[in-house]
Design a binder for these strands. Structure first.
Lengths: 124, 124
DNA sequence: CAGAATCCGGGCCGATACTG
DNA sequence: CAGTATCGGCCCGGATTCTG
């Protein structure tokens, strides 16, 4: 029971670890959320502003999913107006390195990949 | 012209490198393909057998997309029966490390995450 | 401010059938 | 062997509207 209310993918069911990580942070926004939270706790609206193009809905969904998987915490401060802060758990520290390595890689080879794509499209 | 025939996501359009990588290898199968090809070139059917659960269709789509982005090469040997081998390009070597780091992380914290999930579901 | 609820189009992905 | 073609379900994800 406890019918799922998120739409983000579930399942640690299969036995491929790499598939598991990507099923959690491989979606459109989660990884960026983790990176943004790398600089310290952030409020909902701060994340919304700093992550270019994310909708309120998807940000909420991503945050819920990350929280559910134990990668971030959500703390509500009893203020008016409401203030909610998100922060990464220690779990995340261990993948910050690899994540940044991937980002670096993408930044360095951006042009190469774009070109490879153009060539492929020309030939097919 | 050159209407897209793959269904896998496109766009290096946005300016977030991390988003770019994940748009290419963050889908359901591509990362696993890269890992399998890490041991050396492999034929289509070898990949199909070694990657648990992949359909012929999705494997083809993933391979085409990886090829298009310049991450793998596809070489057809003029034999009968046909023999097609896929291999990673040098580009990929640089991310093999980070990718394995992610897989390691997932393997190590598998239980923790499953537990976090159970708790979250109980509380909500 | 920080969401929840709903509608809805498009694309991911699997199943199946067919081909050089 | 290594694909392609087609159909269809389901879910991702944006837009919009409503709430404490």
């Amino acid at each position: 029971m406890s019918r799922r209310h998120t739409e983000v993918t579930d399942q640690v069911t299969d036995d491929c670890p790499l598939r598991d990580v990507l099923a959690v942070i491989g979606d459109k926004w989660s990884a960026q959320v983790l990176v943004r939270l790398g600089d310290g706790p952030r409020r909902f609206s701060e994340l919304e502003r700093s992550i270019e193009g994310v909708s309120r809905r998807m940000l909420t969904l991503s945050l819920r999913n990350l929280e559910r998987n134990g990668l971030i915490t959500r703390t509500v401060h009893p203020d008016a107006p409401p203030r909610v802060e998100y922060a990464t758990t220690p779990l995340v520290e261990e993948i910050r390195g690899p994540l940044e390595a991937l980002a670096d890689w993408a930044a360095r080879h951006r042009a190469t990949i774009t070109e490879a794509r153009r060539e492929y499209d020309l030939a097919h």
